[in-house]
Design a protein around this nucleic acid. Structure first.
Lengths: 113, 113
DNA sequence: ATGATAGTTAGCATTATGACTAAGCATCAT
DNA sequence: ATGATGCTTAGTCATAATGCTAACTATCAT
């Protein structure tokens, strides 16, 4: 595979893990500390740290440290490219329908002659 | 990790690979045979087959075989859960804002007294 | 200054992913 | 019936992903 992950690959990959998605859902409620995020997962801290860094590298969360506490917050806008990509696929698909329509119109014109 | 992938995990995982996304984009234009999909990737057939089965297991494509030719088509609706999930996160996030709004309203009412 | 708390780093084991080659099977055209 | 075509299967390999423990650092409370 490519060493160069596109933003989209990073995003989709980050979202492909249930633990990470549940972390995001929790963060959608409100920002939280690392430990608060680890608790409900039942996973060890280092494991959760890893998930958090995947999320952060994908731009899906932002974190800041105050004293010994790191606070994480969701970055909802980061999901936009996902929606955009899906919309693009739909647009391509619809343009195919348009072409079919055009083709049908041509055929009908042809028959009308 | 879990042996049991949720639909969402399957979907996001399938979409996380650039080759698979480009295959989907090609299929959004029009259905295609396995070889037609393999060509532009520069990958070998068995590799592409694997990508196709990932896409099919995620429900993102449907395939059918006629003689020795397998034709693949995109299943756009399959992407809906992705959009829905993202919308849900936004909804949660917005309900948090609502709560903040309510709080601010309260404060302002308080000050107006 | 001591101990508890919060997070971090390093290293390891297991499994999953993505690529390949080689060989096989089923059509289709001649 | 033979060869070409299109796909499929099996097996291999390298790398990445996910989990863990153990040990470490930095803060905060007393």
């Amino acid at each position: 595979m490519t060493k160069h992950h596109s933003d989209l690959s990073l995003l989709f990959h980050a979202l492909a893990d249930p633990t990470r998605r549940s972390i995001l859902t929790q963060l959608a409620e409100k920002p939280a500390r690392v430990t608060d995020l680890a608790d409900p997962t039942g996973l060890r801290l280092p494991t959760v740290m890893r998930h958090l860094s995947v999320l952060e590298e994908a731009g899906l969360i932002a974190t800041s440290k105050d004293g010994r506490v790191r606070t994480c917050a969701i970055v909802l806008e980061a999901m936009e490219p996902v929606r955009t990509w899906i919309d693009e696929q739909r647009a391509i698909w619809e343009s195919r329908l348009d072409r079919l329509d055009a083709f049908v119109m041509d055929v009908m014109k042809e028959r009308g002659k």
